[in-house]
Amino acid sequence: MAKNISTFEIFWVFSSITLIASLGILFIWVPTDANLGISQKIFYLHVPSAILGMISIAIVAFLSILYLLNTEKKKWDDLAYSFSEVGMVFLTIALISGSLWSKPAWGVWWTWEPKLTLTLVLWFIYVAYLMMRSYMSGSGNEAKFGSVVALIGAIDAPLIYYATELWRSAHPGAVVGPNAESGALDERMFFGLIASFIALSFMFIYFVSNRYFLRSTETRMNFIVRKLN
């Protein structure tokens, strides 16, 4: 096979560099939280992975609709599938890191508060999407049913973000995005969050591009084999 630098390798290099840089920024330059202490550093892992997990389901829903509008374009469906799998990986990390932060900060591993409950629902939506696609694969209906599931998830995602506003919650109010209170986050902490978000986004893109390469090649190969037969 020809030895040339692929897109994957570029993303891999980018994500490695930014990850190491962000870890340096987070643990050397960004100050420790006055109330929560060192465990607050989980924040820089927890928040970006949750955001990526939530954005991802919206992208899956959007791509699903694109595909349903023109079912000739199998690539949208392949891309939707790739986003769903990687999105689930990041949401899983958000849930686990959240639980590991909640124990020292709140005193419990898990509690049925709105933001947590809705996030768990989103996680199950990812599970349902992937399970449905694997069980129904080849039936021709998988993308249609998948898009319905993804749409429910895309409704759930903003509810998660606004949960602290809409219901009583144990979560602190939003510290980033349109619902954030100004001054809720120390400036250097905000910079640390951005650095971490960029690094994890590169990783996210790296995973999606890898997954998409795999999925689309499989699709093409299935097509060729079908033709041959």
Partner: peptide, 30 residues
Amino acid sequence: IILEGRYTQDKVFQSKNIIVKCPSKYVASS
């Protein structure tokens, strides 16, 4: 502080679990 438990007849809240709702601002320690 969020307490989970029962509010009894004698007007005492019997807590089984304590959940601490953290301050919603993150500030640098001095």
